[in-house]
């Protein structure tokens, strides 16, 4: 039974990393994106984030109390789920949506399976997919045009990806606006620079493995460059494609989730590439303008299979075999 738990090759070394410490790093890394969302979409963004986070934390506490398990809200994982779900919502959604979405994410996608570490899909993404299937109009139409600090128009505005896919009445923002985040989109996905700050912090702190985001973004870049323009190869606007939608947010913060991504380095690279392929498939030929969240969910599903296919050899297995002989 215990051998199943050993998934990395020994020798192991002890670190002072703890679950809540790692999770706190992620919360810190998300702060620039949270700030950017408030800058571009006003205080409304903050109310959505706060609603989502409180619903996540309360659901976690209530469920764990109800089934008489240890209450784990202090490990910050519910806070992260709450923030990530909010980051994945259009800024114009009614407030009951983040509340329901977070409760679904925590209870159905995570706690029912036994809590942190046992869920097989990323809870925030499951919450988003649920909201997307439940109230598709809100999730695909409640966009707001960005404006500095609450200067948000009430008129809805098409996202760059929707425009790329042929939505009427939209113009593409310039590259600088895309980098800064001055464009329509989900709360936390618009500012590539803010997300990158958080992502680099996580890589520097060794919280996430750069293979997943690099594999993910690199694959999207190559595939959209090759196939991005209908009827012509190698002429797609790849830079625009990687900067739009939730690619950076998904690649750095959601595809890298420990619990639902592979444990080996090769497996992680495969995870990144797989996410990239599915994202491009959905973006260019699928039924939705954006495919990042579905691609990560789908790769979550095959993560156990990837891990199984890539179990590393035990370090020093020869030695162990010899010992068995002498026994």
């Amino acid at each position: 039974m215990t051998e199943r738990l050993v998934v990395s090759p020994s020798p192991h070394w002890k670190t002072d990393k703890t679950v809540s410490g790692l999770m706190l790093d992620v919360v810190v890394a998300l702060m620039p994106a949270v700030l950017a969302s408030v800058v571009f979409f006003g205080w409304r963004a903050l109310t959505i984030i706060l609603t989502s986070v409180s619903s996540a934390v309360i659901s976690e506490a209530v469920y764990e109390k109800a089934v008489k398990r240890e209450v784990t809200i202090k490990d910050y994982s519910a806070v992260i789920t709450g923030i990530l779900l909010a980051m994945n919502m259009p800024p114009g959604v009614p407030l009951w949506m983040p509340a329901i979405g977070s409760a679904f994410a925590i209870v159905v996608a995570k706690q029912i399976f036994g809590g942190l570490g046992y869920n097989f899909v990323n809870p925030a993404l499951a919450g988003r997919a649920f909201l997307m299937a439940a109230w598709p109009l809100h999730m695909t139409r409640d966009w707001l045009a960005p404006g500095f600090f609450g200067g948000v128009d009430a008129t809805s505005s098409a996202t760059p990806l929707a425009v790329l896919k042929g939505a009427p009445g939209g113009t593409l923002p310039g590259i600088w606006d895309m980098l800064l985040g001055n464009r329509a989109g989900c709360l936390g996905e618009t500012s590539v620079i803010a997300i990158l700050m958080g992502g680099i912090y996580l890589i520097w702190k060794e919280v996430i493995d750069p293979r997943i985001p690099l594999g993910f973004i690199g694959t999207v870049f190559v595939l959209t460059w090759v196939f991005g323009k209908p009827g012509a190869l190698f002429q797609g606007n790849a830079i625009y494609h990687i900067l739009s939608g939730g690619l950076f947010l998904g690649a750095f913060f959601m595809a890298t989730d420990y619990v639902t991504s592979p444990v080996t380095s090769k497996g992680r690279l495969l995870m990144g590439i797989g996410c990239g392929v599915i994202t491009v498939l959905i973006r260019l030929w699928g039924g939705y303008p954006e495919g990042v969240s579905y691609s990560i969910l789908l790769m979550n599903l095959v993560t156990p299979l990837i891990d199984r296919a890539m179990v590393p050899r035990y370090y020093g297995w020869k030695h162990e075999a010899r010992k068995e002989k002498t026994l």
């Binding site: 997919a129 039924g287 495919g291």
Partner: peptide
């Protein structure tokens, strides 16, 4: 829910 991502593909 994840497989809904493939809806209307191609």
């Amino acid at each position: 829910l994840a497989f809904l991502g493939f809806q209307n593909l191609f």
